[in-house]
C-alpha cells in the first residue's frame, strides 16, 4: 500500500498536531520532575530546569518504602492479569460462540455489572471481605480478577463474534472436544485481543487507587498509587515527587505496551487465513 504525496503530508501534519496535545503535557511532567519546587511554580513558566536534578527520582523513591509498594503492585498486577486473561477468554468464548438458554439475559446482567457505581456497593463489599478476613490483605484486589470482569469479556466477545462460524464446525467434524476446539483453535486466533486485555489490565490495575485505599490498611501492604497519593496532603502537595514517581510508574505499562505492540500488529489476519 503506497500513499500519494499529499496523503502522506496530511498524515504527518495530523500526527504532529495530535502529538502536541498528547505529548506536551507529558513532557512538561517529566521536565517538572527534574526541577526544584520553586522553578516549577515560577511565572512566566520556564520550560527547562536550571539544572537537571536526576536525584529527584532517587529522593522521591527513598522518601517512602517504595520497594515494598513496588513488590505489592507487581504481585497484584501479575496475578490479576493472568486471572483476567484466562477467565475472560473462557467466558467470552461461551457468550460469543454458543447459543444457549438464558444467554440474552445473562449477557445483559454481565453488562449491567459495569453500570453500578462503586460508591454504593463498596461498603457492603467491605463487610463481605471483612467477614472473609481479607481486609488488609491483597486478596480483595486479586481474587475477583479470576472470575472475569465484564469489560474484558465484552471486549473479547466483540472480537470472537468477528470470526466466521466455519472454524468450530470444522473442528467438530474432526471430533475435537469443546474445550479442545476452544484451546487449540480459538485461543491462538485470539492472541491479539488477549494481549490487548492483558495490557489494558496491567495499566488499569497498576494505577488503581480506590481499591487499595479502601481495602488496605497498613503501609507494608500499600501499592504504588497509594504511595503516590501520600505526596498529596489536604492542604499542600509535593509536586516534584508526584511527577517523579509518576514518571517512574509509567515505565512498566509502557514496557508492557511495547512488548504487546508487535503481537497486535500481527493481528489475527495470519491466523484467520490458515
Amino acid at each position: 500500500m503506497k500513499m500519494k504525496g499529499f496523503g502522506r503530508a496530511a498524515t504527518y501534519a495530523l500526527l504532529l498536531l495530535c502529538s502536541l496535545y498528547f505529548l506536551f503535557p507529558f513532557i512538561w511532567m517529566v521536565l517538572t520532575a527534574l526541577k526544584t519546587e520553586a522553578e516549577a511554580y515560577v511565572f512566566p513558566p520556564k520550560f527547562l530546569p536550571g539544572e537537571f536534578r536526576l536525584h529527584n527520582f532517587a529522593d522521591a523513591w527513598k522518601s517512602q518504602p517504595f520497594g515494598g509498594y513496588l513488590r505489592n503492585s507487581l504481585v497484584v498486577t501479575i496475578l490479576t492479569t493472568v486471572g483476567q486473561v484466562a477467565s475472560c477468554a473462557l467466558v467470552a468464548y461461551g457468550f460469543a460462540r454458543y447459543s444457549f438458554r438464558g444467554k440474552g439475559v445473562l449477557f445483559m446482567i454481565l453488562l449491567g455489572t459495569m453500570m453500578i457505581p462503586w460508591d454504593v456497593t463498596m461498603i457492603p463489599l467491605y463487610m463481605e471481605f471483612k467477614a472473609l478476613g481479607w481486609i488488609n490483605t491483597l486478596k480483595p484486589l486479586i481474587v475477583p480478577a479470576f472470575f472475569a470482569s465484564a469489560y474484558y469479556v465484552f471486549l473479547l466477545r466483540q472480537f470472537l463474534m468477528g470470526i466466521p462460524k466455519d472454524f468450530e464446525e470444522a473442528a467438530r467434524i474432526d471430533g475435537a472436544s469443546e474445550f479442545q476446539t476452544f484451546y487449540s483453535i480459538f485461543v491462538p486466533m485470539m492472541k491479539a485481543p488477549l494481549i490487548l486485555v492483558g495490557v489494558l489490565n496491567v495499566m488499569g490495575v497498576w494505577n488503581d487507587y480506590l481499591g487499595p485505599l479502601i481495602f488496605l490498611n497498613s503501609r507494608n501492604k500499600y501499592t504504588l498509587p497509594l504511595g503516590l497519593a501520600a505526596f498529596k496532603g489536604a492542604h499542600e502537595m509535593q509536586v516534584i515527587p508526584i511527577m517523579a514517581i509518576t514518571t517512574l510508574m509509567i515505565l512498566l505499562p509502557v514496557a508492557a505496551f511495547a512488548y504487546a505492540q508487535k503481537y497486535i500488529v500481527e493481528g489475527m489476519s495470519g491466523a484467520l487465513k490458515g
Partner: peptide, 25 residues
C-alpha cells in the same frame, strides 16, 4: 452444557462478589 461451563467463572464470581453487595445496596 458446554456454554455454561465456559461462562461459569463469571457466574461464580458474580454470585460471590457482586450479587450480595448489589442486593444490599
Amino acid at each position: 452444557w458446554a456454554p455454561y461451563l465456559f461462562i461459569s467463572p463469571w457466574i461464580i464470581g458474580f454470585v460471590a462478589f457482586t450479587l450480595g453487595p448489589l442486593l444490599f445496596s
